[in-house]
């Protein structure tokens, strides 16, 4: 297991270096940030001053080496736009994104798994058919549109929930979150449901497929023959077996929820990382873009690692040292 983890971390380092280079060159190719940042009233002297102030007057390789030097000291550069360390800027937004992703994941799992299991248990019932039809909608309706519709219905027409932003936060066990205040929960509900919809459908379908497959297995027949109740067969034995694919997929999707919930964050003006990356790309704020992607890649690597470890716990047949990936 140790060898496995070390090998993983080494691969990660290579991925990070290659990616930082690609992003550096890519952002450089898009254009000159000063052309966007500088006030239109400015003259040539001011433009040159700004270029020098942002360190853009040096050749690209020199800028990159400077960045790498800083990165080794834990400094990923200062945002051009905010004049704050890029990493600090990202970490500031991280709690908002994490709580949204967490809330969405909870909804996806706690709603999706039972629905999917029911649909798999009674595939012919009209309720199951309705669930499956609903999951198709969840897949195919654009998040953007669903978000706006939810705002129109629940915020504008019914006036039950606030339409935008993050609610009041409170500090619990040293963590500042809006998930513990009533106002915060009211704010997070719509965006979380919006973000969860797609994952919910996915989880629902996976659970249903797993259910149908497992119900035909020998161990289910054996358990029934042994005289176990249907409830115990499904809730304990089958449930454990359908968890394995669910964990893998959910793990990967969690990464997606955190890193790329851009659309939902934009529609609900949620002050998270997704909005930050879009704004930074629009402003060609290279330090933030690079830092963001480095953080994202690291996060994916660790989530995958956690999934692999969890996998081996759930399924004793899996041995981590054998995994070459």
């Amino acid at each position: 297991m140790t060898v496995f983890i070390i090998r993983r971390l080494m691969q990660t380092a290579i991925v990070l270096v290659v990616m930082s280079m690609i992003v550096f060159v890519g952002v450089f190719a898009i254009g000159d940030p000063t052309a966007i940042l500088i006030s239109a009233d400015s003259d040539m002297i001011e433009r040159e001053r700004a270029i020098a102030a942002l360190g853009l007057d040096k050749p690209l390789w020199e800028q990159y080496l400077y960045f790498v030097g800083g990165a080794f000291r834990g400094d990923l550069g200062k945002s051009f736009v905010f004049n704050m360390p890029a990493l600090q800027l990202i970490l500031q937004r991280l709690p908002a994104t994490l709580e949204l992703a967490f809330a969405a994941l909870v909804i996806a799992i706690f709603v999706g798994v039972p629905l999917g299991m029911y649909a798999g248990y009674r595939p012919e019932s009209p309720v199951s058919k309705a669930i499956m039809a609903g999951s198709i909608l969840g897949f195919s309706l654009p998040t953007f549109w669903v978000g706006l519709m939810m705002i129109m219905v629940f915020a504008v027409q019914l006036g039950w929930l606030p339409s935008t932003g993050r609610g009041h936060t409170a500090t619990v066990f040293g963590v500042t979150t809006s998930l513990v205040t009533p106002d915060g929960l009211a704010h997070v509900l719509l965006p979380a449901v919006n973000l969860a919809l797609l994952k919910l459908s996915l989880v629902c379908r996976l659970a249903r497929a797993g259910m149908r497959e497992n119900m035909l297995m020998d161990y289910v027949k054996f358990a029934r023959a042994k005289g176990l109740t249907a409830r115990r067969v499904v809730m304990v034995h089958v449930f454990k077996n359908i968890l394995i694919p669910l964990v893998t997929v959910t793990g990967l999707e969690l990464g997606n929820l955190i890193a790329f919930s851009v659309v939902t964050e934009t529609v609900f003006a949620w002050p998270g990382m997704g909005k930050l990356i879009i704004d930074s790309i629009n402003n060609l704020d290279r330090p933030v873009i690079v830092a963001y992607l480095l953080v994202t890649v690291s996060m994916f690597v660790f989530i995958n690692l956690a999934v692999d470890i969890l996998y081996s716990v759930l399924d004793p047949r899996v041995r981590l040292s054998e995994a070459k990936g």
């Binding site: 504008v156 339409s163 935008t164 932003g165």
Partner: peptide
């Protein structure tokens, strides 16, 4: 002063009375 950069979201916030 809330930053709501998306046009539709800003209009919805006004209609909902949040702003």
């Amino acid at each position: 002063l809330k930053l709501i950069t998306n046009n539709s979201a800003r209009v919805a916030a006004l209609l909902a009375g949040d702003v």
